[in-house]
Design a protein around this nucleic acid. Structure first.
Lengths: 210, 210
DNA sequence: TTTTGAGTTAAACGTATGTTTCAAACAGTT
DNA sequence: AACTGTTTGAAACATACGTTTAACTCAAAA
């Protein structure tokens, strides 16, 4: 076996390059070159480019999924019948993300960029893949949000949820650029934690507007 | 001259297809086929695909830009020294957008998609094009927002502004997809106006959180 | 009438893409 | 050491792309 698994090297390279340039704009040759792997390796190990894209998602979403599930489970075991506030829910999610991305600062931005692309990319196989593969987690979080915002109409809650998703995906995915602007315009540095600290109150206030 | 100008037919087709499938995923052949125009016409009239993308955007941005400027001008002439609320500012922008996009539903998605790409795409031609084309309007709106939120720290206002931008860009650019989900999950149809009607209170509440 | 020049057309060009092929190299088992 | 299934390697394949070319159309100017 090589120093690092071929599959892993491909996933690492693809993750970075997809986030940087998008899916259609990133060729398998660029990926395999950066991964220092033969071109055919992608089709051998993953089957197709589409499958590689989905694999990139799964590697991130899998651990994230389990972490959110387990932390929610343990919380519900300790505090049954408790109703989480929006802030609580967001903190749970944010903490899981921080845990999954820890060690690789760019990983959060990368994932958010992928998420944004997945939503925008036309009749994407990506969105359907995400929807079917991670429906139960989505529903569980959505159910918590529903309990936390009992006065909201379902449709409006749906839209506000995606407003939150958009605010997070957009800013966190271009965090690098935005932080550079902040440093230039305000002569201040922002850590990732500070940005998340700004974000969560914004989201919470937004979802219970009026 | 044909029934409709070749240039216009190309722009119309490109606008629809870009919104539907994205830029990289839309080929010139698809565009020229739908426009019922020869393939070479794009390169003859616009020079390149990049230039076509910018032209599509300019056709939207030009009128939008002028509309916001003039409506702000006339308001300031009628009510000098008045301080606009966040809701007022958002309504000005939304109304200009509605005016520019009226009659063609995809235009809003196009614009938002371009905006997202411009922010995400590291050093693409889009970002520079938008920055130079967009700057003075951006600064004017930002100044109004500053007056409307005097208690906010500049850095936090900067972030909250981009949270708003993100929520809008993300949801409006994938509005087609999201509306389909709403129709499937809630058995309800959402008009664009309704979505914007949901969006603005969310944004306003978010930017003055706490 | 002839000339001009912008507009259109069909075809081709060069390049880049995702994918496939098949022989060579490898690792583990007997 | 020989066999076996798995992984890699270099090359080719078929296709799709953006772009360019050069012949052609045709209305208006000279």
């Amino acid at each position: 076996m090589a120093q690092v698994d071929t599959v892993t090297r491909i996933l690492d390279a693809a993750e970075e390059l997809f986030a940087e340039h998008g899916f259609a704009e990133t060729s398998l040759r660029t990926i395999t070159t950066r991964a220092d792997v033969n071109l055919a390796a992608v089709n051998y190990h993953f089957g197709s480019k589409k499958a590689l894209i989905q694999a990139v998602f799964s590697r991130f979403l899998g651990p994230f999924y389990k972490l959110v599930e387990s932390s929610l489970d343990s919380h519900e075991k300790m505090h049954p019948d408790s109703i989480l506030s929006i802030e609580d829910i967001l903190r749970f999610v944010a903490r899981a993300m921080a845990n999954v991305t820890q060690g690789d600062r760019n990983r959060l931005a990368i994932f958010m960029r992928l998420l944004g692309l997945a939503y925008n990319q036309g009749q994407g196989h990506l969105r359907k893949f995400l929807q079917t593969e991670y429906r139960s987690l989505f529903r569980r979080v959505m159910a918590l949000i529903t309990k936390a915002t009992p006065d909201l109409q379902p449709v409006e809650r749906f839209w506000r949820f995606h407003f939150m998703l958009g605010a997070a995906a957009f800013t966190l995915s271009s965090m690098e650029n935005l932080r550079a602007i902040v440093e230039h315009d305000f002569d201040t540095k922002c850590t990732e934690e500070e940005v998340v600290g700004y974000l969560l109150p914004f989201l919470a206030a937004g979802i219970r507007a009026k």
